[in-house]
């Protein structure tokens, strides 16, 4: 698993990466009530705002962690945003992305570094 400073996680699955947000992020956000996902086939650039999430408190954007193409989105999450609260790194995944430049992952944190960042 790789982690970004924006509290996203990326897990390799064949030639794509599954992306979600961390348990730390969902506990800070509170109960999620709305998730708007990108379209499959979208070509996105790192730091594009591609997902909108709303908790009971506020709206936030999720940024594309890398350049690439969206290959799949978690429609179950759009139907039931609480999946992200209940199973952040499992059923609560957001989308899958095929990287156009896998070297962008090199700078990301591993689990130990992420845990150190969140204290």
């Amino acid at each position: 698993m790789k982690y970004t400073e924006e509290h996203e996680w990326l897990r390799a699955e064949g030639d794509v990466y599954v992306v979600g947000i961390t348990e730390h992020a969902t506990s800070q956000l509170g109960d999620l009530v709305f998730v708007e996902l990108p379209d499959v086939g979208d070509t996105v650039a790192k730091d594009d705002e591609i997902v909108v999430i709303e908790s009971v408190k506020a709206a936030s954007d999720i940024l594309a962690p890398i350049d690439g193409e969206i290959t799949e989105v978690n429609t179950a999450l759009a139907e039931d945003p609480s999946l992200a609260n209940n199973d952040a790194i499992g059923e609560g995944w957001f989308f899958k992305i095929r990287p156009s430049d896998a070297s962008q992952l090199d700078d990301m944190m591993d689990e130990a570094a992420y845990k150190e960042m969140i204290g």
């Binding site: 509170g30 109960d31 009530v33 009971v56 408190k57 609480s82």
Partner: peptide, 8 residues
């Protein structure tokens, strides 16, 4: 603003 139970 909330307790451990959570807003929902």
């Amino acid at each position: 603003v909330q307790y451990p139970l959570g807003v929902l």
